[in-house]
């Protein structure tokens, strides 16, 4: 694993979640689960982020905010939809104000189901996300190399 996988900093955004999944995300940071073991830090700042955790089914009010946060995260980045609402809209799917899942607004890489999501499942999801992050870093490096080669021609 490269340094990218050993230091995944997360950003957590609540897109109209009931706070159930948010509490579980914070629980993962407490001494019981201690995700800092894996170098994970809750940054609260899109400029420093690698993994974007989104909870909730996304309503009309936070569509723009979600898109904005996603755009501000530098590549390589991975989006994790935390909880069933973020994955598909959950029980709120048919509500008039819910867009039905994070993937209706931004591309999602990992879906972690559960209501609310269990910290174990969340950590499993983040481990999956770290794998994808590594792949994306490799792609980015290859793309950079290709650009250099093309510029050389």
């Amino acid at each position: 694993m490269t340094s990218t996988g050993k230091s995944p900093w997360i950003l957590h955004y609540n897109a109209s979640s009931c706070n159930g999944c948010d509490i579980e995300i914070l629980a993962a940071l407490t001494p019981v689960y201690d995700v800092e073991r894996f170098g994970i830090i809750n940054t609260g700042n899109p400029a420093h982020t690698d993994i974007f955790l989104v909870t909730g089914g996304v309503n009309e009010q936070n569509k723009a905010v979600l898109k904005n946060l996603y755009d501000q995260i530098p590549e390589p980045k991975v989006v994790v939809a935390v909880g069933i609402c973020a994955s598909s809209g959950g029980v709120f799917r048919d509500c008039y104000n819910i867009s039905g899942g994070v993937d209706t607004i931004i591309p999602v890489d990992v879906y972690v189901p559960g209501c609310s999501v269990r910290p174990e499942a969340l950590i499993e999801g983040i481990v999956k996300a770290i794998g994808i992050l590594e792949e994306k870093r490799l792609q980015l490096a290859m793309k950079k190399e290709r650009n250099v080669l093309e510029a050389g021609k």
Binding site: T2, K6, S7, D50
Partner: peptide
């Protein structure tokens, strides 16, 4: 690790 990651 953090610094090397940031560098990439």
């Amino acid at each position: 690790y953090d610094v090397v990651k940031l560098w990439h």
